[in-house]
């Protein structure tokens, strides 16, 4: 589904990704771990399509299509979803407005008519219940005045509403208490299916206790320096990254 080959990316003239390879098939969950500043968010944004990254070598393919040639909105309509490490506030634009626009953009992309407003509301309320988001919050501005935990749950809500095929979650678990962490994990698991794939960027084993990964990768100095199964994450939990970075 996702094929990253020999990816080199620069930000403001600085090399961040230096030859990254990653292959994700439908149905799989991959965890990406690694020290701060190693390029995890950069990788996520390059896949999602943020501007400002210079790709100097390599390729990213999604279902065999060259992803790097597409604007971010097209990538999203193709089924890529990025849960932001730092969700953005948009004052005055309600969550419902954003969700409806996003949902209808997808439908338009697929040549479907706009969703019926009643069906839309019912669908969003149903999804909100899964992540324990108060329906009242839906009419508030996007992430406007939300707590850190609320913002993260809101990312999961958007994901549940939009039902992407590739879910990239950039440290969605950071800063969450245990209850919120469970909610987030439930949200991710609710979408797990043989047609979908997940990329979990995380620092902690505890999320992986709830969302079992098939593969664990360690990203350091702009490359995947080690890949393994779930046991690699537990090893990292004990030993830290030092032994790998030196390698």
């Amino acid at each position: 589904m996702l094929e990253v080959k020999g990816l080199h990316a620069k930000v403001e003239g600085k090399d961040i990704l230096k030859g990254l390879d990653l292959s994700v098939r439908a149905g799989e969950v991959h965890a990406i771990m690694g020290p701060n500043g190693s390029g995890k968010s950069t990788l996520s944004h390059v896949i999602a399509g943020r501007e400002g990254y210079e790709i100097t070598a390599g390729s990213v393919q999604f279902d065999g299509r060259d992803l790097l040639a597409l604007p971010p909105e097209t990538r999203a309509c193709e089924g890529i979803f990025l849960g932001f490490q730092y969700p953005v506030e948009i004052p005055g634009v309600s969550n419902l407005t954003l969700l409806k626009a996003a949902l209808n953009a997808r439908r338009k992309y697929r040549g479907q008519p706009e969703i019926d407003p009643g069906d839309f509301l019912a669908w969003v309320r149903d999804r909100a219940r899964l992540v324990k988001i108060d329906p009242k919050m839906l009419s508030r501005g996007v992430n406007e005045g939300f707590s850190g935990g609320e913002k993260k749950r809101n990312e999961i809500l958007q994901m549940l509403v939009l039902e992407p095929r590739l879910m990239i979650l950039d440290e969605t678990d950071s800063g969450l208490d245990i209850d919120a962490l469970k909610i987030v994990a439930d949200g991710i698991n609710a979408l797990r299916s043989p047609e979908r794939a997940t990329l979990l960027v995380t620092h902690y084993q505890r999320l992986l206790d709830y969302v079992q990964p098939d593969y664990v990768h360690v990203l350091a100095r702009g490359r995947i320096v080690r890949s393994g199964g779930p046991e690699l994450a537990r090893e990292l939990e004990q030993k830290g990254y030092g032994w790998l970075e030196a390698a």
């Binding site: 999602a48 399509g49 943020r50 501007e51 604007p71 971010p72 909105e73 990538r75 999203a76 309509c77 979803f81 990025l82 932001f84 969700p87 953005v88 506030e89 948009i90 004052p91 005055g92 634009v93 407005t97 954003l98 626009a101 996003a102 953009a105 997808r106 992309y109 501005g141 996007v142 958007q158 939009l162």
Partner: peptide, 26 residues
């Protein structure tokens, strides 16, 4: 903000619609 526009686009919303949405919110 660039990041507001990008956030909307990463949800599938085209650039012009995103601008008008942000402006309407404002």
């Amino acid at each position: 903000a660039e990041d507001q526009l990008y956030y909307c686009r990463a949800r599938g919303i085209g650039e012009e619609e995103a601008v008008s949405m942000i402006v309407n919110g404002f």
